[in-house]
Simulated scan of single mutants.
Amino acid sequence: MWQTFALEMDEKRPGFAKGPWFTMNTVLTLDDRLDADRLATAFHRLQQRHEVLRTEVSSDRLQLIHPEPRSSLELVDEVSSHAPVDIARPIRLRLAGNQLALHLHHMVSDPVTLWETVTELAALYTGQELPPPAQYTDYTTAEADQVRRTSKEAAAWWHSKIRDTKVSPQPSSTGDPLAYRDDLLSAQEVAAVDALTKQHRSTPLVTYLAALAHGMDPHVGPGDTLAFTTLFGKRDRPAWQHLLGPCIVPSYLAIPRVTGSLAADVPAVRDAVVGCSRYARYPASAIYATIQDPQRTPFFEYVPQQWPTGFTFGTVKAEVATAAGPKDTGLADALAIRVRTRTDGVLTGHFSADGTDWTEPLVHQVRAGIRDYLLHEEGT
């Protein structure tokens, strides 16, 4: 479902999903030198073990699984947080002195895949014997089966939630494309909001969604529900916890209009998130017919801080220096807001849009509304 969704995006914005910068990336700092030959052998074995690392997503949507690894360890002078990855060879590993960089094309990976790939690479370098892995083919087959088994129940739920949902009319303004990052909350403010979230027996995703709905409310038209597109991680079976491959389901969030009080908003937003996640596998195409202009629906994603504490390559210790998702290449479409908590505790946001409705001044107003809602609630 993730790959289909990404390819549909690429059809509208050529190069967005199949391009070389649509990647998941990390750079590790090593406390000693790695044996390059040993690392190259471990990297080769890693690709042999996992079909998804030998998979080419072709232009006609076929999955071509190559019989042998097609990527080799690269010895370079320096590494960076982003590097282009050919979709035909979806993994790159680069070593420069005491830094090791891994880059995976996002068509065959997600954040969990990034960290699991490093974990297994370190184990193979160390010489550990690993059991045969689950393959991504198994996951996609199981997902298709679940879609078939739950289609009626999911259709009934979505019909009850979406039939009266009006994607609020976008602001009638135009401007330049925008793509920028900005801090939303300080570490101290994040800690206070986290405490408030626990007090309401909720999650950060629910809290930040309620705040976003509040921030957008003055700038959109009337409607009982705000609709967003989002991504749900679906590693909801033990067999998928350590699977390499994108276990992501694109779907919608049907969020009730907020009242202005977190205590009142949390139950309704939480119920909406739970329901949207439970029935996320319902094909988006079936929802399109009931949502006005679904392609312009704003995108929202909350990414919790999930960097591992470190890895061990034999006697060499490795720490995460940085991690990054796809590089912004100026192919933004509808408004997209991604927020995450950095290692220093600061909540930061990435905002992008093509400027045909949500312009940068309006987005700054939304950002101010998010802060106003959260900081008013916590009383600072």
Rank of each mutant, 00 (worst) to 15 (best):
W2S: 02
L7H: 13
M9V: 09
D10L: 08
G19T: 03
T29D: 15
T29E: 15
D31G: 05
A36L: 03
R45Y: 08
Q47W: 00
Q47F: 00
R54I: 03
S58L: 13
L64H: 15
P69S: 13
P69N: 14
S71R: 06
L73S: 11
L73C: 08
D86T: 11
D86E: 15
L100V: 05
L104E: 02
L104C: 07
A122T: 00
P133C: 08
Q146L: 10
K152D: 15
K152N: 15
E153K: 08
A154R: 08
A155D: 14
A156W: 13
W157Y: 14
I162Y: 02
R163M: 10
T165R: 02
A187S: 11
L196Q: 09
H200N: 11
R201D: 09
L212Y: 04
G215I: 01
G215Q: 04
H219V: 05
V220H: 12
P222I: 02
G223A: 11
A227R: 04
T230I: 03
Q241L: 14
H242T: 13
L244C: 02
I248Y: 07
P250I: 01
I255Y: 00
I255L: 14
S277A: 14
S277F: 14
A280L: 07
Y282A: 05
A286S: 05
Y302A: 01
P304Y: 03
K327P: 07
D328Y: 09
T329L: 12
A334S: 13
L335E: 00
R338P: 07
V339T: 07
D344F: 04
G345W: 01
L347P: 01
L347E: 01
T348R: 11
G349I: 00
D354Y: 05
E360F: 03
E360A: 11
L362Q: 10
Q365L: 14
A368F: 10
L374A: 06
